[in-house]
């Protein structure tokens, strides 16, 4: 059984909101109807989004880091939002683990949103049904799209490739490798929801370079006898040939 999910690299996200706008664009144009907005260009604009990018400041000035933090439904493996739904409108798909809302069954009681600790669900104030990230279920299986585009809109939009998409149950998938090798973690593990989406932490990518790595030291193994050291602008041993 697979479990599709996003892995979001906080080390790379620059907080440009491209995923937010691209998500909104794709999902407001789908068969399920618009993701409604109120006063989009007026005062107090508000509307339904599947994905938000938030910003946090970590540390004390001047030693602070700005962390941009995209948040959408985490497609929990044990989703508390599903069993509480009285109508069965909220469900988790067996085949790929995506948590969905059936907009034709939802009565808009909002109970599921209370049961999601992450605030991932937002009611559509006009359609009066609960909405949330679908992992672009209407595009990732679309045979009319080229294979490379069968990914959630947010993943395709991200200019820094901070968003990875794949099956976290397949140990060889790009997401599983990233989680394994880059220290991927889940949000609020204390509630046992086992979010499928993971986040990659901030990490320092430094390389150590020493002086003698910048200035080439030729023939380092030739111990016997002094060799002529070529000048810096002359062709060096390695550049010419092996002799």
């Amino acid at each position: 059984m697979s479990q599709l999910a996003l892995v979001i690299d906080l080390n790379v996200c620059v907080g440009c909101h491209a995923c937010v706008t691209s998500c909104k664009e794709w999902n407001t144009s789908g068969v399920a109807g618009a993701l409604s907005d109120d006063r989009p260009y007026g005062e107090q604009p508000t509307g339904t989004f599947f994905n938000r990018v938030q910003t946090f400041e970590v540390g004390e000035y001047p030693n602070t880091e700005t962390v941009h933090f995209p948040k959408s439904c985490l497609h929990c493996e044990d989703p508390p939002c599903v069993p509480v739904c009285p109508t069965g409108a909220s469900y988790k798909r067996e085949e790929d683990g995506i948590v969905l809302v059936d907009y034709d069954k939802c009565i808009g009681c909002k109970y599921c949103s209370w049961a999601c600790p992450y605030g991932a669900r937002e009611i559509d104030e006009h359609q009066k049904v609960m909405k949330k990230c679908t992992l672009c279920v209407d595009r990732i299986y679309d045979q009319n799209l080229p294979e490379a585009e069968r990914k959630p809109a947010c993943v395709l939009a991200c200019p820094t490739s901070a968003r990875l998409f794949g099956d976290v149950h397949d140990p060889e998938s790009v997401v599983s490798k990233a989680i394994r090798e880059e220290g991927g973690y889940q949000l609020m593990p204390e509630w046992g929801t086992q979010p499928a989406n993971h986040y990659l932490p901030r990490r320092k990518t430094r390389i150590q370079i020493h002086m003698d790595e910048l200035v080439r030291a030729d023939n380092p193994l030739k111990k016997e006898g002094p060799t002529v050291k070529p000048g810096l602008d002359e062709p060096s041993l390695d550049d010419v040939t092996s002799w």
Binding site: R52, Q54, L187, M188
Partner: peptide, 29 residues
């Protein structure tokens, strides 16, 4: 409270402050 900003965004640091919630005019949340 069992959850805090550390577990919410997964960054182990004593001082975390939100600067933006990704919207200006409020939302369902």
């Amino acid at each position: 409270p069992q959850s805090n900003l550390k577990t919410a965004i997964g960054i182990r640091h004593g001082k975390i402050q939100q600067r933006s919630q990704g919207q200006m005019g409020g939302s369902f949340n």
